[in-house]
Simulated scan of single mutants.
Amino acid sequence: MPVWKTPFNGYSVKFSPFFETQLAIATSQNFGILGNGRLHVITLPSMTEVATFETSDGMYDICWSESHESLLVAAVADGSIKLYDLSLPPDRNPIRSLKEHGREAHGVDFNTVRKDSFLSAAWDDTVKLWTVDRPASVRTFKEHAYCVYAVAWNPRHADVFASASGDCTARIWDVREPGSTMILPAHEFEILSCDWNKYDDCIIATASVDKSIKVWDVRNYRVPIATLNGHGYAVRRVKFSPHRGSVIASCSYDMTVCLWDYMVEDALIGRYDHHTEFAVGVDMSVLVEGLMASTGWDELVYVWQHGTDPRAP
């Protein structure tokens, strides 16, 4: 597939869970420090833009709804969480702008079980729980001592999620409980990302400024079951494969995208060095096995099949 050029710096990329031909990209002007943001939706394999929405501040993350094929939620640097409906014209979007976070909103994730619920993570040290039909958050989770960079719902339990924070901990939460149910002192430096295994709901991965990815079993979380070393700088995002339980994708400030199998001794099974700036967004298609996408501060979006060169036309 050809490469797609974004007007701003790429921050997040997500395949649609409904259409194998749709890809959403969140971008920010001036590396996300100052300026506007844009959400783009493009069609594959032609890499043709079908929708674009602009925000007055940078856009750091996006996520597709798990129940409405045209609905997306975005995390914006002004602290707002915006909902977009692709079936409506641009002048009727966003359909909702939820402004409760006191600082930059950095991560969003839709619940795959209770499909009207989603989470947001922000630099005000909090996580918020929302539902699509309510104009205010359902609950705020306030235990982290520093920025919360990412949240991820457990793929099988409607009430359980994980959060990754700059306070060097990952926390496991159950929305039915008053506080977090588990604290993982996972890394010695900031944790930038986390994700649940799609095949084993007790396995979670964390990614850190310490350049490592760690895999944990929440039934016995004192020691990681795997530590994946190979990135040269902070690991910005980590994603479990939707097709193979032991496979993880990651991207890093070292400008590479890596693929790992944490169950084997030589865990690194693929390294792609196609980006020329920080690689900050990576995703794997739920609908097409082996199909990957990445974006970075080089203003480029790549879509490729694992094992092929992302730069090949």
Rank of each mutant, 00 (worst) to 15 (best):
Val247Trp: 04
Asp273Asn: 08
Gly270Glu: 02
Ser246Cys: 03
Ser285Tyr: 02
Tyr253Val: 08
Glu277Asp: 15
Pro242Val: 07
Ala249Met: 13
Trp297Met: 06
Glu299Ser: 04
Asp266Pro: 08
Asp298Val: 00
Gly270Leu: 01
Tyr272Glu: 15
Met263Gln: 05
Ser246Lys: 03
Ser285Ala: 05
Asp266His: 12
Trp297Cys: 06
Thr295Asp: 11
Phe240Leu: 08
Asp298Trp: 00
Arg244Ser: 09
Thr295Trp: 04
Cys251Lys: 08
Val257Ser: 14
Val282Ala: 04
Leu259Met: 10
Glu289Gln: 14
Met284Phe: 07
Glu277Asn: 14
Asp266Glu: 14
Tyr253Ala: 13
Cys258Met: 13
Arg271Asn: 09
Glu265Met: 10
Trp297Arg: 00
Trp260Val: 00
Asp254Pro: 10
Ser250Gly: 12
Ser252Leu: 13
Arg271Trp: 01
Val288Leu: 10
Asp254Gln: 15
Ser294Phe: 00
Asp261Cys: 10
Val238Lys: 06
Val286Ile: 10
His274Trp: 03
His274Cys: 08
Ser285Ile: 06
Val264Tyr: 06
Glu289His: 10
Phe240Met: 07
Ala249Pro: 11
Asp266Leu: 11
Ala267Thr: 13
Val264Leu: 09
Asp273Ala: 08
Val282His: 03
Ala267His: 13
Tyr253Phe: 14
Val282Trp: 01
Asp266Cys: 10
Ala249Arg: 13
Tyr272Ile: 15
Leu287Trp: 09
Ser241Phe: 02
Ile248Tyr: 07
Glu265Ile: 06
Val286Gly: 12
Gly245Phe: 04
Val286Cys: 12
His243Tyr: 14
Ala279Cys: 13
Asp273Cys: 02
Glu277Ser: 14
Leu259Ser: 09
Glu277His: 12
Gly296Lys: 02
Lys239Glu: 14
Asp266Lys: 14
Asp261Asn: 14
His243Met: 15
Asp298Pro: 00
Met292Cys: 12
Met292Gly: 08
Glu299Thr: 08
Val247Leu: 08
Ala279Phe: 02
Met263Gly: 10
Pro242Asp: 05
Leu291Val: 09
Ala293Arg: 00
Ser294Arg: 07
Pro242Gln: 12
Trp260Gly: 01
Asp266Gln: 14
Asp283Thr: 12
Met292Phe: 13
Cys251Val: 12
Ile269Phe: 11
Lys239Asp: 09
His275Asp: 05
Trp297Thr: 03
Met284Asn: 02
His275Asn: 10
Tyr262Arg: 00
Leu268Tyr: 10
Ala293Cys: 03
Ala293Lys: 01
Cys258Ile: 01
Ala249His: 11
Tyr262Gln: 01
Gly296Asn: 06
Lys239Gln: 15
Asp266Ser: 13
Gly281Tyr: 02
Glu299Ala: 04
Thr256Arg: 00
Ser285Leu: 05
Gly296Thr: 10
Ser294Thr: 07
Cys251Phe: 07
Val280Ala: 00
Leu268Arg: 15
Leu268Ser: 13
Asp283Ser: 03
Phe278His: 02
Met284Leu: 03
Val238Ala: 06
Met292Lys: 08
Asp283Glu: 00
Ser285Phe: 03
Cys258Phe: 07
Tyr272Arg: 14
Leu268Asp: 11
Val238Thr: 10
Asp283Met: 00
Val282Thr: 07
Thr276Pro: 05
Ile248Arg: 08
Thr276Gly: 05
Tyr253Arg: 13
Met292Glu: 05
Trp260Cys: 01
Val282Asp: 00
Leu268Cys: 14
Val286Phe: 11
Ser241Lys: 06
Trp260Glu: 01
Gly281Gln: 01
